[in-house]
Design a protein around this nucleic acid. Structure first.
Lengths: 196, 196, 196, 196
DNA sequence: GTCTAATCGAGACGGTACGTCGAGTCTTGAG
DNA sequence: CTCAAGACTCGACGTACCGTCTCGATTAGAC
């Protein structure tokens, strides 16, 4: 005997996520207010508060829908080095897209608010980390024939992705593209057991 | 004929910077309001607005006093590899200190506010970048006897520092310490012209 | 061919009226919300709106059941003066009872809302006025042997009841009891044609 | 050494009181919201909350300024009976004026809210009661040469004013004018020591 | 010693957004 | 068709800070 009464409106959910996304890109994080989202989505404020605790939760919801593909590891299409380089380009490009702006804003906000940081970590970053480790492991395996252990894999991921996030978050733009290919090669070299 | 009347009070300046620092560490960035700083410093709001444009400027002021030494490159004390590893440890530790928290908050806020980002870049990050490049160049020179060109040096700095900032800003804590020594050696290897 | 489906549930009607009554006495008029009544009566809001237009209508419904006896003119039991005095005591006491509180609240609300005022007038006050005039006329007739004309009777009712309502509505409590007996005698005196 | 800084703006105070008055008369009590008053007065909501706790306090403030003259007892101008009758006319007319509407609304609200009732009593009704007793005593003294005792005077005031308030608050309009002169004469008769 | 001009505290003010409450309407599925 | 449950829009609530402003009181050169 399931419960009675009206159900949550999916169209409202989508309208809110889109409104939040749009506002963030157009006006920035500070100007993305709950009232603004409500107005733009044509929805009552109370309806937003019924389903989300804060604008950060809304953006996190929006991110989950959009970022999965933007940061996904593609199927093999060339040599491991080529595929890895291509992925780094994809990550660098991602931060220019709307979904990337959302992630950037949420990362920024996470520095300012411990709860938001925890929510972002749980809701997105750790999952993405797992996907990154899996994607990187697959490429390394294609390259060397074996999978590095967890710790080593994590270090490689940090060396590989760290510079991109660093340039984006600290200097406001992805790194020069000519950094990416050497970084990919370097990582694959480090992944060969003898170099460990 | 110079002007008359009282001059800017240094004690007020210090009280405001300390109040801002303390509030940030104790309550977080969002709770660090101009009104709160004014109250805690025992100062009128107007007095703050007379000398600073926003709380970001206050924190930037506070950062400039504290971060210089926290992120400074030390004098040679061992082999280049040892010195470089030691510096990476220093950077990682810096983000645990109050001054590091301020930088982290300002970096976070910079993701959310373009003006704040520009101010942080101009007021701190670019200068620190220059110091980092100089410090790294000096160590490489000791190691290889020659200085890499500007672009290459920048890439090396990104590879070296990126992972630390990445772990701090994305995962909320500095990387495992055992990542740092390999990263230092790696960077020095990459700096030798033949490996490029 | 009469209509199908269940009819209005009497148990719900009673539950709602009681819930409204209770809430009014316990929490006051403002805190007596439709939502509160619905919750307390274990009934859906919509069900209330199906049968009543507003909380005022609910309270009016509740009043009609209780106030009739509370403000009723009793059968002759003594001299006209005694009976009139007794009635005044009954009216004064009525405002201390729950039903009196409801009337007081509805009178209060009527000052603030023209529609509510009209509803109260139509639904209760004019009927009560008629009962009061009839009761008073009966007593006067017993006393003087004749019935005063409509206008005169109305004035007498105003002089008689006015002070009680005045004390209750303006000063929050019924008048001192020793006002009531002189008022009763006075009214009867004024009712004798020669004193008019 | 009095305090420094800007003082409360008198023009704002007046603008708020007028806006509240106007809204009450034009739209009624329920539609007289703090936000509406603020908008109409061209004032920030916070400014209202700084000086008044609720709209009731605002209206009370407004009342104090306007009701004093509207309900004042005039100087002797004729016989005591004439003056008393004139005063009753003044009271009955008062409830048709804006200030009278305010009093009526506040009386209505007082039935619904104990705190509001207490505030109204303290802030206005008890003072007005004192003025009424004094005014009535003066007229009686002119008529009979002596002043009745406190209790008796109170009863006379209740008999005199009760019917007017009763008709206004219960039936929504002042009593027929021909009630007033008999009521005045009656009261003076009752005030003569032998009739007591 | 004035004089004079800026600094400083205190805080009033117009705003914007917050997060909450209840109103009244509408939708769903059970009985 | 009625009902409980509750999603929905709407308007107002009272609060927090924002950034601007005004008001004396204080202070430190210039004369």
């Amino acid at each position: 005997m399931s419960r009675t009464g009206p159900r949550r409106s999916e169209s409202i959910r989508v309208a809110v996520l889109n409104a939040a996304d749009d506002l963030l890109v157009e006006q920035g994080f500070a100007a993305t207010t709950i009232e603004g989202i409500a107005t733009r989505a044509g929805v009552a404020k109370q309806t937003i508060y019924r389903w989300w605790k804060s604008k950060v939760e809304i953006l996190l919801d929006a991110l989950e829908e959009d970022a999965l593909e933007g940061l996904a590891w593609a199927e093999p299409a060339g040599t491991p080095a080529e595929d890895l380089t291509a992925h780094l380009h994809r990550v660098a490009d991602f931060f220019q897209e709307p979904a990337g702006r959302v992630l950037q804003a949420l990362l920024g906000n996470a520095q300012l608010d411990k709860d938001a940081a925890a929510a972002l970590r749980e809701g997105f970053l750790l999952k993405q980390r797992a996907r990154d480790l899996a994607g990187l492991a697959a490429i390394i395996e294609r390259h060397t024939g074996s999978t590095p252990d967890e710790d080593h894999l994590g270090h490689l991921a940090d060396l590989l992705l760290g510079p991109i996030y660093y340039r984006v978050l600290v200097f406001g733009a992805p790194p020069a593209k000519d950094l990416l290919e050497p970084a990919a090669h370097l990582t694959l070299n480090l992944a060969t057991p003898t170099d460990n």
